[in-house]
């Protein structure tokens, strides 16, 4: 019920934006831009410039194509696809995306990243391992665990079967675990948790 209400709301906002209502599109931006930016930030290996530009470009493209938004999916799903598509284009043209996992802990961007790093060594290890995954595997883990989408939504986002989402996710997690074990040693993982 909540989802359908949000969907209807997205559709109404998009329709109003098409009709020239400036506040409607601003509402959509308010609602989704930060979420999209953060997701893209993770996908771009912490490159905030890239994430900023992809976010901006996605909204510009979305605005240009508002008439194509039919409301079948949420606005976020739609704009995520636009951003993702563009990110894929960039990856094809320019490899690799500038990667700096430590940038995500830039003190200039976080309230207290230093203490956060100290508090959770495991998080850093996982984050480093995530950057070593290939794009496809990293994306599906982020969509599920970072962005919190359910399987059906991920399937819709990636245009694949729900069962494929599960199996791909399972494979990505195994890959992630292998990387972590290789980086820190299988016997040390338990120690990190204690």
């Amino acid at each position: 019920m909540k989802d359908s209400a949000a969907l209807e709301d997205d559709r109404q906002l998009a329709r109003r934006a098409q009709d020239g209502d400036q506040t409607a599109f601003a509402s959509l931006i308010d609602r989704y831009s930060e979420r999209l930016f953060n997701m893209l930030l993770q996908m771009c290996n912490g490159n905030s410039d890239m994430a900023s530009e992809l976010t901006q470009e996605a909204f510009v493209r979305a605005y240009e194509r508002l008439s194509q938004f039919d409301g079948a999916s949420s606005f976020y799903t739609w704009i995520y696809r636009l951003a993702r598509n563009r990110a894929i284009d960039i990856r094809k043209r320019k490899k690799p995306i500038a990667s700096d996992p430590h940038e995500m802990h830039d003190p200039g961007h976080q309230d207290d990243p230093g203490s956060q790093m100290q508090q959770n060594e495991m998080q850093n290890i996982v984050q480093g391992a995530l950057q070593e995954l290939d794009d496809e595997q990293r994306e599906i883990i982020l969509l599920r665990d970072f962005d919190g989408h359910d399987y059906a939504h991920i399937a819709s986002l990636l245009d694949i079967a729900e069962g494929t989402v599960k199996s791909r996710l399972s494979r990505a997690r195994k890959a992630l675990r292998t990387i972590i074990e290789n980086n820190v040693g299988a016997d040390q993982i338990g120690g990190l948790l204690s």
Binding site: E34, L41, S52, P113, Q123, L130
Partner: peptide, 10 residues
């Protein structure tokens, strides 16, 4: 760890 990864404000 993934869920609590730092989110950077736009």
């Amino acid at each position: 760890s993934i869920k609590t990864m730092p989110k950077q404000e736009m």
